[in-house]
């Protein structure tokens, strides 16, 4: 089962430039979360802080009792072995072939035989669609291929916590859709806690259990997907609909004159699109173990959520009134199976 990641009051700045402050959230064990945010709001910095590559100025990141932000170096190195991180640019080792890159963690951290390593690597290469390219050097393949190789390398040790930095950038729409399915399938298979950083609205609206958004040096919200997807908050609504009108401008914040003009035009009244259902694992994988945990968790939260989100959750989980006993909840029908997309190959 995945591991819970607790972030408390994280603040980070580079010199005088404040990136974000006082970010607190919990990535529930085994669930898939997405972090949104306009370009340059520090999403990559956030991921790197979670894994201890960057040291925040204040705050803690707790994983299994280890503080990745300020704990002992040795504990941090040990805990990192639970992680798989896919870098925004792949971060492959330039002097090694794709095969050696993906095999690297296995050779470092396991005592598997070379034939066993070969089998695992080829399996992962097939999952990300890179079979046949394993002999190439990172300099000889496209950006999208590098990212997929980076994903294969991040997954090769069956990590308990998977952090993925913009899986979709450099991928075509079909690959992105397949990737969304792949991410859900991975979650169903390994029950790993996942955090995906993305700008991609399709991924954001169909993959995660939870969503958050970084904007203007703070965490706007973090919570069940229904909360953000139904949010009336201008920033969130603008971002999730990819609109020009709204508080986000090319330089993160629009000046007040533009905002006033837009407000006069009445942008805020544009309706939100209907909520897209979450992807289900491919047939044959069985349900995600996190789905049931999440259902219980979200139903106990129900009272604290805004009405629109509450309605959506009720719709998804059947009309449960909050406060029912666990036994009653367990008898509820599971969400209807969705027409699943083809699994990623």
């Amino acid at each position: 089962m995945g591991i819970e990641v607790v972030v408390e009051g994280l603040t980070k700045s580079f010199g005088k430039q404040e990136i974000w402050q006082d970010v607190s959230l919990t990535l529930p064990a085994g669930e898939v979360s997405v972090m949104l945010g306009p370009s340059g709001t520090g999403k990559t910095v956030f991921l790197k802080s979670l894994i201890g590559l960057l040291k925040p100025d204040r705050g803690r990141v707790l994983i299994d009792g280890v503080d990745m932000a300020g704990g002992a170096e040795r504990d941090i190195y040990e805990t990192r072995k639970l992680f798989g991180l896919m870098f925004q640019d792949g971060a492959l080792f330039g002097s090694m072939t794709l095969f050696d890159n993906v095999a690297f963690p296995l050779r470092e951290h396991t005592r598997k035989k070379e034939s066993e390593i070969r089998r695992i690597v080829m399996e992962r290469m097939e999952v990300v669609g890179l079979l046949g390219a394993e002999g190439k050097l990172p300099g000889e393949i496209s950006g999208g291929m590098r990212k997929r190789a980076g994903l294969a390398r991040a997954l090769v040790l069956d990590p308990q916590i998977i952090l993925i930095d913009e899986p979709d950038s450099g991928l075509d729409p079909v690959r992105t859709a397949l990737l969304s399915q792949l991410l859900i399938d991975l979650n169903a298979e390994f029950d790993a806690t996942m955090l995906i950083v993305t700008h991609n609205l399709d991924i954001a609206s169909t993959v995660p259990d939870n969503m958050g958004m970084l904007y203007l040096r703070r965490l706007v919200t973090f919570g069940p997907r229904e909360v953000l997807l139904t949010s009336e908050e201008p920033v969130v609504a603008q971002f999730l609909n990819g609109r020009r009108e709204g508080p986000i401008g090319m330089t993160e914040e629009k000046d007040s004159a533009t905002l006033a003009r837009e407000a006069a035009d009445g942008f805020a009244s544009a309706p939100l699109p209907p909520l897209a259902p979450q992807l289900e694992p491919s047939p044959g994988l069985g349900p995600r173990r996190a789905a049931e945990r999440r259902r219980r968790r979200v139903l106990t939260l129900l009272d604290q959520l805004p009405p629109a989100a509450r309605a959506e959750i009720r719709k998804a989980y059947g009309a449960t009134a909050p406060g029912r006993s666990d036994a009653e909840q367990a008898t509820l029908t599971p969400p209807p199976p969705l027409p699943t997309r083809r699994s990623g190959t």
């Binding site: 790197k48 894994i51 990192r80 072995k81 870098f87 492959l92 080792f93 470092e108």
Partner: peptide, 18 residues
């Protein structure tokens, strides 16, 4: 230096390798 800017060193650290 070039490994550092290509994030290869970060990747090593993420794998728990110094």
């Amino acid at each position: 230096g070039s490994r550092k800017i290509r994030e290869e060193l970060d990747a090593l650290e993420v794998m728990g390798i110094s």
